[in-house]
Simulated assay, not measured.
Amino acid sequence: MNTGNEAVERAISRVWEVSPRPGQGSHLKVGQVLKPGLWKDYDPFLLLMEDWFQSGTFDFHPHRGIETVTFVLEGKLKHEDNHGGYGVLEPGDVQWMTAGRGIIHSEDPLPGETVHSLQLWVNLPRASKMAEPRYQDMKAADAAVRREPGVMVRVFSGASGDVRAATLNHVPVTYLEIVMEAGAELRQTLPGSYNGFVYVLEGSGRFGGNEKPGTERHVLWLGSADGAEQSELTIRADTPLRVLLIAGEPLGEPVVAYGPFVMNTDAEIQQAFEDYRSGKFGPIPE
């Protein structure tokens, strides 16, 4: 175990490929980037789904106990919720929605649009499960940006180099979009305790201290930092490369999930359904 203060180079411990499958109706395709149910492995992340969909797929529905982070790759997506949140996301934009104690929202492409998006569910710690709902729109054009030779990093949450996002977080999370020219290299510092992964959107490169190759639709999971306080991930672009790097502090708490609700006990899940049916989540918008 490393007990010093030096940053340990992260290796890549696992690689898998995302294979989108046909959906139903206006839900055209879906890919499981992080498959639901592996709560301990992915902590603090619950799932990451890649979706291609048209209007009417995700009408008003409730959530409790989580945050959803939506990254739009193609199309224009309208968000609306019953706590006053409203916005239209375009390609490259991110929405960070805290469901907390309960929210009812919809995610609907604008008329005639097909949206291609990635939605991450971040678990909330026990102390924040019933937090006040919150909605943060992060436009690509307004994001904090780190620039290195041949490298552009949009910082939607957390930090990269000396650049830090102003995102409000219940769980410490680093969420980066990284665009690199062929031959460029990036070193990204992360707390050694973080779990995390890279998802390759375009191009190919080598990742981590073991220079694991990755190409489009590959998920590369970060190995352990061996107890070090700080760690470092190296990314080398073999071709023009675009990836998401997502990492966060594990909660180490029990997870009970049913549908749109994620809590710590079965009783809390039952209470969530009772509260939703009794109107405690608030009215569904007209």
Rank of each mutant, 00 (worst) to 15 (best):
E6A: 12
S13R: 12
V18T: 15
S19W: 04
P20V: 11
V30P: 00
G31V: 01
G31L: 03
L34I: 15
D43M: 10
D43L: 09
P44Q: 04
L48A: 11
Q54F: 02
S55Y: 04
G56S: 08
T57M: 14
T68A: 05
V69K: 02
V69S: 01
K76E: 15
D81T: 04
G87D: 09
L89A: 11
G92L: 13
V94L: 14
A99K: 06
G100S: 07
R101C: 02
R101S: 09
E107P: 00
D108Y: 00
P109E: 06
P109M: 05
P111T: 02
G112R: 04
V122F: 00
A127L: 05
A131P: 05
G150K: 08
S157D: 05
V163N: 09
L168C: 00
N169C: 11
A182Q: 12
G183Y: 12
Q188L: 14
G192R: 05
V198M: 13
Y199V: 08
E202F: 05
G208T: 01
N210S: 06
E211R: 15
P213K: 03
D226C: 05
G227P: 06
Q230A: 14
A237Q: 08
V243A: 10
V243I: 15
L245R: 11
I246A: 04
P250F: 07
L251A: 09
L251R: 08
L251C: 11
P254K: 11
V262P: 01
Q270F: 05
E274G: 01
D275K: 11
Y276M: 13
